[in-house]
Design a protein around this nucleic acid. Structure first.
Lengths: 356, 356
DNA sequence: CTGTATAAAGAGACCGGTCTCACAACATAT
DNA sequence: ATATGTTGTGAGACCGGTCTCTTTATACAG
């Protein structure tokens, strides 16, 4: 027990240099792996470094090189399977290119997002991947660009920002799912999302500040309209932010005049809440109500019936976002693009066929 | 489109100082919020900083202060709900104290863990939370201590290391669950874990390198022994690392001479795999086989039947680990402790009552 | 009106790396 | 033998903050 607990000063190149009886510059060349050094001196320095247990100070290294080797990721909520899977994709891409990832949670709140971005810029991350909580507040993101830090948006696009974005093909996904439901004979469909909303209802699709949700809603509405079904906006419900809210949203929805026969859940958390709501209302899926959820979450395949889902390939989305960002960091000459990762409908057992 | 895309040099205190017509030292005092400066000068500097959009370089700040404000976390797999929940607990505790979190995945592999630890030390994190993949390889962790970086172990303890650890009360949890199963009339119980193993079997409990699993197995065995049940070791099966492996483990287990009537899953991923295995074998829970899983994962409450689980309070564990580490970083005079977070059995519907 | 205490601002070292430049030693060309 | 080139090493500036030490300006006491 003789090691002094109080943080002894770390070993530096200067210490190694002294021990190896060479100049600081030479030791640095060996330890930093740059420049030219003779084999003999290299061995001397390496031996000294090993003996002293030298560990380079990456902070100092970043200072002089201007590169931190870190990419910053701001997500809505890591606990959400969507984001944790995406983060794995990003991390894998990053590790492959020698970068590390620092993660910040915004909790889908604009202020938290702003300070997270500021903080990461302060840490001099080499690039930033952000899931913007709102697509209508962009000055903090413009500042990122002005600061010269490469930026890639994730899951949601902001056309005005002129920056790369990796998203699902949300419009198409919603169209496919909605057409499928109609094909199965459903005529009254509802779309339920966790987006905050004043009254749970919706008057203007264009005002949905989350582009992924907006595009899905657009796809949903366009199919209903093209099928000549009445009043599509009526069946769009926001505010399913927790179990209690979801319970009341679902209860209200199903007790109205002409209740929907099928529900489309905006993400897997909402899907799970809806499932539980229906369960607690004693309704059977798909006999009483049909449902489709986004994201192939764990729970969707073990329920009775298993849930029909729109698979979003989130891992690939994350990986793609990571790769794109790294390409930007390495100054690849690329046009600004919106990269859409295609989704697919996985039919399981939660949609009933209705014959008229 | 006139902003030059090529990363213009960032604004520094010196730039602000020049613009505000004061010395670098004075500007730094204002911007860094230390020392004494007159109100007039403060205003001047702040105005200049705002005009230039000054953002402090946290890297440089860390260099001189020796504190990075970052705590490093090395987990087995963020995608695992156990860890993502824990990370949220850690992050919340960190944010509250003004720290940020950098996460690294070890994939439960020792080499990856070592390099992650090295990397984080290199980044000069203020402290480290590690989920050690193996409890029998500790030199890299000893080096952390020698480097003077506070360390807290998570989920698994290593007594030889003389360092704080936050874990569940794994032994008790296993005892409670096992006693419950015996109380329900079960006489042949199996414990299934994802730990790597040579042959899937087990000869020596002491050789299990993951202390959480080891302690649970010990608890499990002790109850079986005390109940006078034969050959407990025979019913401990490792190697359920993926669906395919799990399928074969379960199949083998159930096709043997005296198959178990109840299964205890070491974590929620294993639990899910076991559930799917049983499902694909056409076995009904709990009629044909009973099961209990660790961790209150999403899926466990929506299956039919819902799964009886051992709730681990992972968020609290994470938060506690974060708080403990921060106390260490701030040099609180604390004895080295093993903090056990108590677990509780949540009885749902996956265990049958057997009457003899 | 001088002396001393005190507050505010400036000068410059320092953290631990990287990297440019100067220089020495030796090999090759003329 | 001198000019030129090449290679390996050393000296020291630099990154952008913090922080100590010194200097200058102002206040108040005697």
């Amino acid at each position: 027990m003789e090691d002094s607990a109080h943080s002894k000063r770390a070993v530096t190149v200067a210490d190694v240099a002294k021990a190896a009886k060479v100049s600081k510059a030479t030791a640095a060349r060996v330890l930093g792996g740059y420049g030219v050094v003779s084999a003999k001196i290299t061995d001397q320095v390496m031996a000294a470094a090993a003996a002293l247990e030298y560990r380079p100070n990456e902070l100092a290294r970043s200072m002089s090189t201007g590169r931190s080797g870190i990419i910053g990721v701001v997500v809505g909520d890591i606990e959400n399977a969507f984001f944790s899977l995406a983060v794995r994709g990003i991390s894998d891409a990053a590790r492959l290119a020698g970068f590390n990832v620092i993660i910040a949670n915004s909790g889908e709140e604009l202020d938290a997002e702003k300070s997270a971005v500021d903080l990461l810029i302060g840490k001099r991350v080499d690039g930033l991947i952000v899931t913007p909580a709102r697509c209508d507040s962009i000055e903090h993101l413009q500042h990122v660009r002005r600061a010269g830090v490469p930026l890639v948006l994730f899951d949601r696009a902001i056309p005005e920002l002129d920056v790369d974005a990796v998203t699902g093909d949300d419009r198409d996904a919603a169209i496919t799912a909605t057409r499928y439901l109609i094909g199965q004979g459903h005529r009254r469909l509802a779309y339920v999302s966790a987006m905050d909303a004043e009254d749970g209802g919706l008057t203007d699709i264009g005002r949905i500040s989350n582009s992924a949700v907006r595009e899905r809603v657009e796809g949903f509405v366009s199919v209903l309209t093209e099928a000549g079904l009445p009043n599509p906006l009526h069946y769009i419900r926001l505010g399913a932010t927790n179990q209690q809210q979801t319970d009341s949203v679902i209860k209200r929805l199903l007790s109205e005049g002409s209740p929907p026969t099928a529900l489309l859940a905006s993400d897997s958390l909402v899907g799970l809440r809806i499932f539980k709501s229906l369960q607690s209302l004693g309704l059977s899926i798909p006999k009483d109500v049909s449902m489709i959820s986004f994201l192939d979450a764990d729970w969707t395949s073990v329920t009775v019936p298993p849930i029909t889902i729109v698979d979003q390939c989130v891992y690939e989305m994350g990986k793609l976002a990571g790769e794109r960002l790294i390409a930007r960091i390495e100054r690849a000459p690329l046009a600004v693009e919106r990269l859409r990762v295609s989704t697919s409908l996985v039919v399981r057992g939660s949609v009933a066929t209705i014959d008229r």
